[in-house]
Every structure is written in C-alpha cells, then in structure tokens.
Amino acid sequence: MFTGIVQGVAEVVQLHDRPGLRSIELQFPPGFDQDLAIGASVASDGVCLTVTERPAPGRARFDIMQQTLSLTTLGALTVGSRLNVERAAAEGAEVGGHVLSGHVDCVATLLSVRQPEHNHVLRIRVPESHRDYLFARGYVAINGASLTIAEVDAAAGCFEVWLIPETLRMTTFGDKAAGAALNLEIERSTQVLVDTVRRELDRRLGAWLPALQSWAAERGLALPGGAPGPDRTGG
C-alpha cells in the first residue's frame, strides 16, 4: 500500500533488456533507501516495483515484466530518466493523500501546462475507458502522486489539477511538457461505486439500455454504460 505522498525523485542509472523483461537500477535521493530490503516495494512513477538487488548504498534494482512495460510509461525509460518514488507505507502510517495500490489503470496525455501566479496547472486527457471515474474534487493518482481534481471537462475527456510549489519541488511534474505520457491510478472507492451503478443499470434496464443511451446522446446527455477498462498493472 502507498499513500500518494511522493518522497523524492530517483534517477535511472542502468537499464538491461532481456526477452520479456527489463531490469532497471535507480539512484535514490539521500536517506530514501534506509533499511530498504530485497523484496520491498517501491512505487516508481506510480508503479509498484519489487527490489531485486541492492548493488550499492543509495541504489536498488528492479525487474519489470513486458506487460507492465507496455501498459505504463516505464517502457519509455532511458538512462537519466527521473521518476517519483515512494516507499510502501508501514502499518499505521498517516495517509496524507489517499490509499494507492501501485497498479496503474491507464496512461493519460498531458495536453497543456498553465502557470498562473504561484500555481502550476496540468490539463490531462484520459482514455475513454476511464473517464467515468473522474469527478471534480475527487482523487486521482498521477505518476504516483495523490492529487485532487480541480475540474472535469467531460465533453473533451479532460481534467485539470493544480499543483502548489511544494508538489513541484518534490516531484518530476515541473519537467513535464505538453505531450508527456502519465500513469494514472483511479481512486478505488470511486471505481467501485461507478461500476456498481453501471452493473445495476445493466441489470435493471437490460435490452432497453442501448436505446436509452441513443436517446440521451441525441439530446446531448450521457448515461453510464460500456465495458470496464483494461487490466491494471503493477507489482
């Protein structure tokens, strides 16, 4: 379990690709790896990875499966890439953000960055499969950081988050420009609620639901429906 409070930024110092598997070595910020053992979990840009080796103080190696590489942004890593990192939460730890599993639901696209005074606003487009789970004032995890959604533009399939200077200092978001790919993990209680309502509508309306959705679409309305999103990935 993770809390979505990023504890620092790590840098990729080595990459080794084998058929179906990539090994990466990360250099952590000072003090991050204290008592970090083989088998421990570290959220890296929101993806739960398991420590496989400790080659030197301040460093750790991780193995990443091909499915994880293809379903997250980790497949695009190169030496020098920077990632948000968080250690797994200890029992009884304060949850300053919201509870995360480290299983990424989808990859979104950063459309634009605005910088009003003392703020940093990211506008992000989400795949259609996960748009129903996003609500203004709700939570979402972006590259492992727990953030509050400021507003949702349902018609455009976008949402915005506003970042304070401290968030920029502790994360890689200040490096991101339009076009960047971002790992998203949906807040689980929201997902459960939306999926439950969707299943209940399907059960109660049955064959009538497509006709109702068509009727609503003609009037610029939207009814929930459709298949759930793709499998999540993580350690």
Rank of each mutant, 00 (worst) to 15 (best):
M1L: 07
T3E: 04
I5C: 07
V6L: 09
Q7S: 01
E11H: 02
V12S: 03
L15P: 03
L15C: 06
H16V: 10
D17I: 10
L21W: 02
E25C: 12
Q27W: 01
F28Y: 14
P29Y: 04
G31S: 08
F32N: 08
Q34E: 14
Q34H: 14
A37L: 07
V42G: 03
S44T: 15
G46W: 08
V47H: 01
V47D: 04
C48S: 09
C48I: 02
L49H: 12
T50V: 02
A56P: 09
P57Q: 03
R59S: 01
A60R: 04
R61P: 00
F62L: 05
D63M: 02
Q67D: 12
Q67G: 04
T72H: 07
L74S: 06
L74V: 08
G75D: 09
T78G: 15
G80R: 09
S81W: 04
N84M: 12
R87N: 03
A88Q: 14
E91T: 05
G92M: 02
A93I: 03
V99Y: 00
L100M: 15
S101D: 00
G102Y: 12
H103D: 05
V107R: 01
T109W: 05
L111Q: 14
S112V: 07
V113H: 02
Q115R: 10
H118E: 06
H118K: 08
V121W: 06
L122P: 10
I124W: 12
R125Y: 04
S129G: 08
S129T: 15
H130G: 01
L134E: 01
F135S: 05
G138Y: 00
Y139N: 12
Y139W: 15
T148C: 13
I149R: 05
E151M: 06
V152M: 07
D153C: 10
A155T: 13
A155W: 00
A156R: 15
G157T: 07
W162K: 00
L163C: 06
L163T: 00
E166V: 06
E166N: 07
L168G: 06
R169Q: 13
R169G: 06
M170A: 14
M170R: 13
K176D: 04
K176Y: 13
A178K: 03
E187T: 00
R188H: 03
T190P: 06
Q191H: 06
Q191E: 13
L193A: 15
D195G: 07
T196Q: 11
T196W: 10
D202K: 09
R203Y: 14
R204D: 09
G206A: 09
G206V: 01
G206I: 01
A207H: 10
W208V: 11
L212F: 11
L212Y: 12
L212A: 13
Q213R: 15
S214P: 00
S214T: 15
A217E: 14
E218F: 00
E218Q: 14
R219I: 03
R219W: 11
L223I: 14
A227Y: 12
P230S: 12
D231E: 13
R232P: 06
